[in-house]
């Protein structure tokens, strides 16, 4: 996993609550055995007017010229609800997103983002509202500083927090499986004490 330190990027505001992972990456694109090839299908049903994905929907915000190249997704509450498909963060990442900012995330999606190195940031509703207003008026660029847990934009700043180990993992690009395999003796000791039925 790539290390995450700071990131400065353009914000695209997606003003929809309860965005589910079926919307982020519809099921017909899950039939791959690789981790790549999902970005092109991100938000397929919204980005394209036809099922085949040949006609771009000009009204969908990700298709608007002023948001081209955006790397920070500003979202509403309960982002990433529904299916546990990790293909959703893979698709967001491959499309170019490094950070997602929302007032709340669905639990599984949030964990999946951390595990793939896509930074999910929770801000207060009022702060989210402020960012939506700012991004509606102008092209909003934010600097996200993970080591210092702060987002800045000119004079404005917003602080956020992550669980200690998740912050460490993202900053250091930890191979979480390798990290746990170093604890194999502890796991074996636990197994030795388990009851027979378990």
């Amino acid at each position: 996993m790539e290390k995450f330190n700071t990131h400065t990027g353009l914000v695209v505001p997606l003003d929809i609550a309860n965005v589910d992972t079926d919307q982020i990456i519809p099921k017909q694109f899950l039939q791959k055995t690789e981790r790549i090839g999902f970005g092109v299908h991100l938000f397929h049903d919204s980005r394209y007017l036809d099922h085949a994905g040949t006609q771009v929907n000009p009204d969908f915000i990700l298709n608007k010229a002023e948001y081209k190249g955006s790397s920070i997704l500003l979202a509403r509450k309960n982002f990433g609800c529904g299916s546990s498909r990790e293909h959703a963060p893979w698709a967001l990442q491959e499309f170019g997103f490094k950070v997602i900012i929302a007032p709340s995330f669905a639990d599984i999606f949030y964990g999946n983002c951390i595990n793939v190195g896509l930074l999910p940031i929770i801000l207060k509703e009022a702060e989210i509202e402020q960012l939506f207003k700012l991004s509606a008026d102008t092209q909003l660029t934010l600097k996200v500083d993970l080591p210092n847990n702060v987002i800045t934009c000119g004079e404005l700043s917003f602080t956020f927090s992550l669980n200690e180990f998740q912050q460490y993992s993202l900053e250091n690009g930890v191979d979480s499986v390798g990290w746990t395999l170093d604890k194999l003796d502890t796991i074996k000791a636990f197994e030795a004490k388990m009851p027979a039925w378990q």
Partner: peptide, 9 residues
């Protein structure tokens, strides 16, 4: 439910 990285873990 878990994601694929967790399946691997």
């Amino acid at each position: 439910g878990i994601g694929t990285s967790e399946v691997e873990h």
